[in-house]
Design a protein around this nucleic acid. Structure first.
Lengths: 231, 231
DNA sequence: CGGAATTTGTTCGTATGTATA
DNA sequence: GTATACATACGAACAAATTCC
């Protein structure tokens, strides 16, 4: 029987603990210093052990922050990602009101929102910084549905609250979650490289008759986010 | 003919590449990890190869930083060290305006500057941080030569430009380059240990008559600087 | 907003055990 | 037996990102 080297044994042990659920999914692992004490090993050895787990996608590292269990994607996670539910830690993020303007719907949005191509829409861009990731949100609101919208008040509202400001109430939400690769613009705004995987989430807010009254686009770095899937 | 061992062959190959100029003088060599991949050898072997080059003074090592080609000292280097010429990479350094005050010349400076002991001089200290090293500059300007000096504007000026602000133009520069050991004060400011070797550069700015009108002292860590000489 | 503290990232320094020619 | 080569392991120094106060 081959004797395992120390760093392999530590990797094995940590892997078991993660599988057993000793460290809650999506939350922190002890930092390297703690692990050194726990296993009585040097930092080099600890890091080699974690290298294995990172390769196996069981653990993710974030410089200046710490080590994290890489969780599977779940219903809970999807709800948080799509903005239906916000985890406490995420709601602390700094939101920056990037830009907003009125424009004509054009072919693309007129189809989705079921309006004429020359109808006016509010086009609003947010960038949300969390400790974990950057999210870009684009909110598209047809002017006719939101005639009294005060753009200066947008900053403090969640997207859902905003949608409910309109003339018609949002009673349903159609959602679409896609894994796409970043184009040049997304790469810059989300601080990732081109062709890195990113999540695109489309929320269509519907009224009681099932007609669309608002559209929300969200982009989120798929690698840095805590929602990890296999690529 | 003896067959060379692997580490000797690697040393030979690296040496050739340095001589050929594949790695620019004073800049980085691939790190040990890269060299392991390049030569398909273990770290021990790579280190033995580099040991040879270090003994031959072709390479210097800096813990936590990397491997460097050890350049000879040259006219170019001396010009850069003395501040006559600034290499592009060095000019990016952060300069901190440490302290400045008016004081009497005293015996020491009165002799060098050919003024009376109780004449007033500006005494100005800079600390310059580069990624490679820390340089301390002391500038001594007799008040009578620089009556309209605005100390708040000093930060954005190079020492040479500053000297040319005075009543009398600098037409010549006497320079002296010494290798000394750090005293307590220098050790602290340059972030070296006491008795570490440091360069001391004295620049005497002279007017048309050959009389000194300003004095500049520069101290630089001789070990961390890219100008490498034998100790 | 700036500086100190924390944490991971990177790299060299050193030592030891093992296999092999 | 000795020199060579590889893998492992512990340290230290420096760098960069982030968080905290």
């Amino acid at each position: 029987m081959m004797t395992m080297s120390l760093f392999e044994k530590i990797a094995q042990d940590l892997s078991n603990k993660i599988i057993k659920g000793d460290y809650s999914s999506g939350s922190v692992l002890p930092n390297e210093g703690e692990l050194q004490k726990t296993y009585g090993a040097s930092r080099t050895t600890i890091r080699k052990a974690i290298d294995i787990l990172v390769t196996n996608k069981q653990v993710t590292r974030r410089k200046g922050v710490g080590l994290f269990v890489a969780p599977e994607i779940s219903t809970q996670n999807i709800l948080e990602m799509t903005g239906i539910m916000k985890p406490d830690s995420l709601s602390q993020g700094k939101q920056i009101f990037k830009e907003h303007y009125l424009r004509k719907a054009g072919n693309y949005y007129s189809q989705i929102l079921n309006i004429k191509t020359d109808e006016l829409i509010y086009y609003i861009n947010f960038i949300q910084f969390n400790s974990a990731s950057i999210t870009k949100e684009t909110l598209i609101l047809p002017l006719k549905n939101f005639p009294e919208l005060s753009l200066s008040s947008l900053k403090i509202l969640t997207v859902l609250e905003m949608m409910n400001l309109g003339k018609e109430k949002v009673v349903d939400l159609e959602q679409e979650l896609q894994l796409i690769v970043a184009d040049k613009e997304n790469a810059k705004q989300l601080n990732v490289r081109e062709n890195d995987p990113i999540f695109k989430i489309v929320n269509r807010a519907l009224n009681a008759k099932g007609l669309p009254i608002a559209l929300e686009l969200r982009y989120e770095n798929a690698l840095q986010t805590k929602y990890v899937v296999d690529f």
